[in-house]
Amino acid sequence: MMELDIIKDDEMDLLLEDVSTIYGYDFTQYSKASLKRRLNRICLIDKLASFAELRYQVVNDPSYLQRFVEEITVNVTEMFRDPYFYKKLREDILPKLGTYPFIRIWVAGCSTGEEAYSIAVLLQEINLYHKSLIYATDINPTVIEKASKGIFPLSKMKQYSENYIHAGGTQDFSSYYVAMYDIAKFHESLSKRILFSTHNLVSDSSFNEFQLILCRNVLIYFDKDLQNKVFRLFDNSLQNLCYLALGDKETLRFSSLESRYRQVKDQKIWQKLN
């Protein structure tokens, strides 16, 4: 069956220490419950019968690392997930940012890129794309590679198009891509102002100053201390009076930074105060 229980807590800690020391990927402050499921899952998929086998593989085969990172992280995403959120961006937040000479947007933890393409669609429709730049980053090189291709399963387009309409979209969503066999290839005009690159929120530093940072459904995988550390990174990367957007179930509430931000009513969007 899907669920297996090969890995024990202390064994997991050992493995994470190894990965951190040998490869510099630090997962030690990730949520244990989710990591454990992922580790059990990778054992199942790669037919590793015991924790010792997994550890041996990870420690002794550097070429396995990318696969390990790929499977440990959860890359599930979609276009216009939470349509109300995108509606708010379209009708309120992005037009406000439109008064700036140039709009820099950071999509942190962008996975295979669906979120970044959704933002690009919004910006095009409200005529701000020409003066925007979207930095889309993720820890996992495999998803970044995929994201830069702009190719998504055709089978998802029905749902994405519904999301898009709920988010206030008025065009025919299929005008944004070309359908070929079972894939949808999005037009290059959408990706031409998106820069995809790897960036690890745990260990890499701030690399620019932004008017909007989106980091949605990434922090749920971090413990509170790590969340706070990442909030500080965002704070250092955000211009005053600009915006930080989190996932639908994430919050800045428990962070020491909260007092310097104002939450946008009914939204998981926070504005940095002066």
């Binding site: 949520s31 989710s34 499921r37 599930v76 995988y221």
Partner: peptide, 23 residues
């Protein structure tokens, strides 16, 4: 439990949400 998230228990008092594959 919110729609579109799995709920896991982190320890006896706290939970963690997860958007991994449907089960």
């Amino acid at each position: 439990v919110p729609a579109d998230y799995h709920l896991l228990f982190e320890d006896e008092r706290s939970i963690a949400l997860d958007v991994s594959e449907k089960v």
